[in-house]
Amino acid sequence: MIGAASLVARRRLSPQQIGRAATLALHDELALAPKPGLVTLTSRGSHEDMDAHTFMRSLFSLRSYFVRIATLGREHAPFEALERCGIEAEQRMLAATGGINTHRGAIFMLGLLCAAIGANAQDPRAALLGLWGEALRARSSERRSTLPGGIAARRYGLRSASEEAALGFPVLFETALPALREGPSRLHALFRIIAVLDDSNLARRGGLEGLRFAQAQARRFLADGRIETAEAIGREFVHRRLSPGGAADTLAAACLLVRLGIG
């Protein structure tokens, strides 16, 4: 029997295939409900400035970005080229949403993942670390982020998104992807991510106490597994204005890998 990784390698995924899967993966995340504090097709979650329509405008603005960065990955372009591509994508996103940050984290995470898949669909984590690991490590250690999530990560001693990338996205490959592969649902996978991720979005909104509360609630759902529990946790997240955006990005990244038969 031919394994999934062998099939991926054999069919040589095109940048267009990778980009389409990335866009659909972001829609997979948006469509999942009930999610605690996050935007869904019918709820704003903990966000007053965005809804599903905002997310859809953002998604359409990013379609060409994922194709372009997958192409750069196939060409083994330097990290600086990937970074410029991401900055341009962020500008298009903000123009499409009227200045609202819907997908900045996804531009970073799924963009790097698309590049890595473009470089080596059989082992994107190895490609990420082999081609751009040194640049990512330098970025995480030498550049002080001025974005809210990066500031919160420094303040509370958390592992930032840049540090997570420099390590080859361990929560994605060691928690999220196995959870999505094993089932029983994307919702369970999301809560498994929330339970372990140093989500700077949660820390920014609720401090370290908010992050630990969210992680404890995720473990509560995983022990219980009932939709009613997820809904109750969601109401509490909204009351506390908590939104696990980093976990949402990680789930979308796992959906991308599953869509492409990787992992």
Results as ranks from 00 to 15, higher is better:
Tyr156Arg: 15
Ser141Tyr: 01
Ile107Phe: 14
Glu142Cys: 11
Arg205Tyr: 10
Arg139Asn: 12
Ala116Glu: 07
Arg226Cys: 08
Gly133Thr: 10
Arg192Ala: 02
Gly130Trp: 07
Ser162Trp: 14
Ala115Glu: 00
Leu112Trp: 00
Trp132Leu: 04
Ala176Leu: 09
His188Ala: 03
Leu129Thr: 08
Asn101Ser: 14
Phe173Ile: 03
Glu174Cys: 07
Ala126Tyr: 13
Ser140Gln: 09
Ile193Cys: 07
Arg144Pro: 02
Arg144Ser: 04
Thr175Asp: 09
Ala116Leu: 07
Ser162Asn: 15
Glu228Met: 00
Gly98Leu: 12
Thr146Gln: 09
Ala218Val: 10
Trp132Val: 03
Ser185Lys: 07
Ser162Ile: 12
Gly150Glu: 15
Thr229Ile: 14
Phe169Gln: 15
Trp132Arg: 07
Leu172Ser: 01
Gly183Thr: 13
Ile193Thr: 07
Ser145Val: 07
Arg219Pro: 06
Ile194Asn: 00
Glu134Ser: 05
Gly168Leu: 12
Leu202Ala: 12
Leu180Asp: 02
Arg219Cys: 05
Glu174Leu: 10
Leu197Arg: 03
Ala195Ser: 07
Ala189Val: 09
Ile194Ala: 01
Arg186Asp: 01
Ala230His: 07
Ala138Ser: 01
Pro184Asp: 12
Ala116Tyr: 05
Ala216Tyr: 08
Arg220Glu: 08
Ile193Phe: 06
Val196Arg: 08
Arg220Gln: 09
Gly133Met: 08
Asn201Met: 10
Arg143His: 06
Val171Pro: 04
Leu128Lys: 02
Gly210Asp: 00
Gly133Leu: 09
Pro184Gln: 12
Leu208Phe: 14
Gly111Ser: 09
Glu228Asn: 00
Gln215Tyr: 06
Asn201Gln: 09
Gly130Thr: 05
Leu208Thr: 15
Arg125Glu: 12
Leu180Trp: 02
Ala179Pro: 15
Phe169Glu: 15
Tyr156Ser: 15
Ala216Cys: 14
Val171Thr: 10
Leu208Glu: 13
Arg155Lys: 13
Arg143Asp: 04
Glu174His: 09
Ala203Glu: 14
Phe221Glu: 01
Leu180Ile: 02
Ala189Glu: 08
Ala165Phe: 08
Glu209Met: 12
His188Leu: 00
Asp123Leu: 08
Pro124Met: 03
Ser141Leu: 05
Ala152Ile: 10
Arg186Lys: 06
Gly118Arg: 03
Val171Glu: 10
